[in-house]
């Protein structure tokens, strides 16, 4: 069961971290990263999403069943995207 965090500090710290990542992502979008721009932006997005999920949504304290639910959804989503994109990307050959 969810053991509620005792202090509000982790929440505020996470909020701060999210805003910092937000600013850095925005700033990086002006650096000409070329083909790396999207992967970098998405990597930052993943970090943000993980922070929100673990701290705000308390997934870190959730039961195994909840964690597995999330993992199953993500695994299937990645499968869908990978095999769909693979089709478009390898069609010419």
């Amino acid at each position: 069961m969810n053991a509620a965090p005792i202090s509000v500090k982790p929440i505020l710290a996470t909020g701060g971290a999210l805003l910092a990542l937000w600013v850095s992502s925005f700033a990086l979008s002006y650096a000409s990263l070329g083909t790396w721009a999207l992967p970098v932006a998405l990597a930052i997005a993943v970090v943000k999403a993980v922070l929100v999920a673990l701290v705000f949504m308390e997934l870190a304290h959730a039961t195994l069943s909840m964690k597995l639910t999330v993992l199953a959804a993500l695994a299937l989503l990645l499968t869908l995207m990978a095999l769909m994109v693979a089709d478009v990307a390898t069609r010419g050959t």
Binding site: L83, D87, T90, R91
Partner: peptide
Amino acid sequence: AGMSTFDAGAF
């Protein structure tokens, strides 16, 4: 259906 050969093989 016009899918790539790579994807077809994988599936």
